[in-house]
Amino acid sequence: MTNHDEAAVVRPLTLAWVGRQLEAGERVLGAEALHGGITAEMRRLTIGARGGGTRELVLRTFVDVEDARDGLSREAGALALLTGTGVPAPGLVAVDPAGAHCEYPSLLMTHLAGRPVLGDKGLEARVPLLARQLVAIHALRPAERPPGYTTLTTADTIVIPKGADAGAWAAAIDVIRGPAPSCEGRFLHRDFHPGNVLFDVPPPGPAGPRITGVVDWTATSWEPADLDVAHCSTNLSLLHGPEWGLRFSEAYGEAGGVQAADPSGRLYWRVRDALAFSEEVHLVSQPWREAGRAELTTRFVEERLDAYVTALMDAPSEPRGLCKGKRE
């Protein structure tokens, strides 16, 4: 087996486990490290068949991650659910959520064509596609619902960026001190953002971009759709500017998505997600720089986060109320 760099090397027990999942006559020919993730090691494996053909699989490995078993179990369940639904996702090959056979908890899945697109060019065409894809995900009704949403972010854990609008941040923190709005539950990806969506972007011409896959289903949950909308909005704000975070919520509604009926209910989820990013700006910005967005330094992203929080708090809202329906 060949490897392109040291990070691509598959550990011996894991390699043996992968080999047991292959078809007769197949073997692993090579591995390539995939960059861009925060918590997992990702490798693309080239699989050779006896007749000379090849195919590709993707290996996800969690090393020293506390909730690895839960995350991989959620992803395995989600990939099984998504088969045949029309939502483009990898196919599940095998999973070892507890690391019983591999050195560390691992999941093996099919490889999808396409790539994440994080640049500003063509964003206006991609945002409606992202919104329509998220609406399709939220329309799924699994026989067995995934666990509910949890958060570790509190009013006391927020890290206010240096030079931020103190008034806007104080008001935003006050928003999450109150109880969460009660809303109808939906099947959520829970980490839906441009880095987890694969696109086929053709050369300039009449054919526009299309989504070829949605990846990283380790945080699937059952809670209000606003959680996913808010998370993608924050990512778009930090990648491209606050106006795009605000625009995504509109695009989701235009695509048929249902959010909290009360504007202040929607504000709660947007603010909660944005404030959660304050604790890990350096973690989320590093993969973006590695992907070619060198200008997205930690400081630059902090300034965009401040601008987004300020924009959210400047938007008109009504007294906080309940969504239509109930949380399930």
Rank of each mutant, 00 (worst) to 15 (best):
C102T: 06
R74M: 15
A291W: 06
D200Q: 11
I38Q: 13
G71L: 14
L81K: 02
V271R: 14
D216H: 06
P202E: 02
A274D: 00
D262I: 04
V214R: 05
Y104N: 01
T298K: 10
L15D: 07
G163L: 10
A40E: 07
G30P: 14
G321C: 14
R186F: 10
T85L: 12
S233D: 02
E250V: 06
W269P: 04
V58R: 14
L227M: 09
P319F: 12
S182W: 15
R293I: 03
G178V: 01
R272T: 03
P88G: 03
D200S: 13
E56L: 15
G86I: 09
A225Q: 09
G77I: 08
Q21S: 05
A143H: 01
A16H: 01
G51N: 13
L275G: 03
R289W: 07
L296T: 00
L81Q: 01
N3V: 14
D200V: 02
V95H: 03
D191K: 05
T234E: 04
T310V: 02
A225T: 03
G321V: 08
L108F: 03
D5Q: 12
K121N: 02
I173V: 14
D120T: 07
P202M: 06
I47R: 10
T2S: 15
W269L: 11
P206T: 13
G253E: 14
T234H: 13
P206H: 15
P204R: 10
P105N: 04
R272Y: 13
L246R: 10
D228Y: 04
A230H: 00
P203I: 10
D67N: 05
A8H: 09
E184Q: 06
A125L: 14
E32F: 15
Y104A: 06
A100G: 03
T85M: 12
Y308W: 11
T154H: 11
R190F: 08
D5G: 07
R11L: 09
Q21G: 04
L13M: 03
I38E: 10
V258Q: 12
R190I: 00
Q259R: 15
V271D: 10
G30L: 14
H189Q: 01
F277M: 07
T54D: 01
L267K: 05
C232I: 06
T153Y: 11
V301W: 11
L312S: 04
L296M: 06
D156S: 15
G36T: 04
F300N: 03
P146N: 07
A113P: 08
